[in-house]
Write a protein that binds this DNA or RNA. Structure first.
Ligand code: FES
Ligand code: FES
Lengths: 153, 153
DNA sequence: GGAAAGGGGACCGATCAAGTCCTATTTCCT
DNA sequence: AGGAAATAGGACTTGATCGGTCCCCTTTCC
């Protein structure tokens, strides 16, 4: 739950791959093959990311994609935002008031934004660079990847 | 994006309403009418929340629901978790390894959990009590409900 | 014993994401 | 100059899943 779409999922994976060699150009086909993802979908996602300004595209033979900025300056929030619009968990308050049909009755109206903000900040705090330096870092610090022993079911 | 289901949406609204009078019993019908939500759906959601241990249910005439704990001790993460399973943004790593088809190729494998953890923590940090004291608090502190001026689009 | 509440689950319809495909455009190489 | 290889852009189909409804059973109060 709190599911993101597969587009974002793939998008982050792809961006992470590109972040490994920021200088280098990668074609959509090569990335798809390497990551074992459906080629047309990869192509589509890369296009969107390029349109969003996160990727630099080079057309023609020997073309391909590369990051338009350094991995450190790209947050996963940006990636998700580029792929699926602004980050908002609920449709209530996306931007303007008057949207939700039950504003008058709703007690939480304003506080939804607290949730949205919390999630957005959490996502903005994670940079692409952090996504590429994988296990060592985690293990070194001794951070537990998961801690949710109590699953009531 | 990063959408939660309407169940969670409604669930949080309902829980917030109940948090206003933690002692009192509320029937599903009354809550539905008050909040202008479809009655059967409300009933369904309350059932799930009760099964999850977040609500105390009383059957029979004069029955109804009430919070099983204080609003301060209930986080929105719990509500969402009860309504839609454990909080995980992606299906890759829900719990055990071996799930994702491309573990060998995936560079982010371990770092997805970083994202999941960040979101989970963000949601755990928000209590039901915070959801009920609505606008005043926000305004007093001068917190901006939204800040996202740069929308590249 | 009846009415009013919750408990549980089956069920259907609409929405939307995921993936495919096609065509145009740009660029490199021969 | 011309062809090949790549991106740009969009239309389309299908499939899952969410949202919502409905029905029947159990419990409790009066
Ligand atoms: S304003 Fe939409 S549910 Fe609160
Ligand atoms: S392990 Fe599933 S995408 Fe990384």
């Amino acid at each position: 739950m709190i599911r993101i779409t597969k587009q974002s999922d793939y998008g982050i994976v792809l961006m992470s791959r590109l972040a490994a060699e920021p200088e280098q150009l990668h074609t959509a086909a090569a990335l798809a093959a390497e990551l074992q993802l459906p080629a047309p979908t990869v192509s589509k996602i890369l296009k969107i990311l390029a349109r969003g300004g996160l990727l630099e595209s080079h057309r023609g033979v020997k073309g391909g994609y590369s990051l338009s900025r350094t991995p450190e300056s790209i947050s996963v929030a940006e990636i998700i935002g580029a792929l699926e619009g602004p980050i908002a968990v609920t449709e209530c308050i996306e931007d303007g008031p008057g949207e939700c049909s039950q504003e008058p009755f709703c007690a939480v109206r304003g506080n939804w934004q607290r949730i949205n903000l919390a999630i957005r900040q959490a996502l903005e705090a994670i940079s692409l660079a952090e996504m590429t330096e994988p296990l060592e870092q985690l293990v070194t610090i001794g951070r537990r990847p998961l801690e949710q022993p109590a699953e009531p079911s």
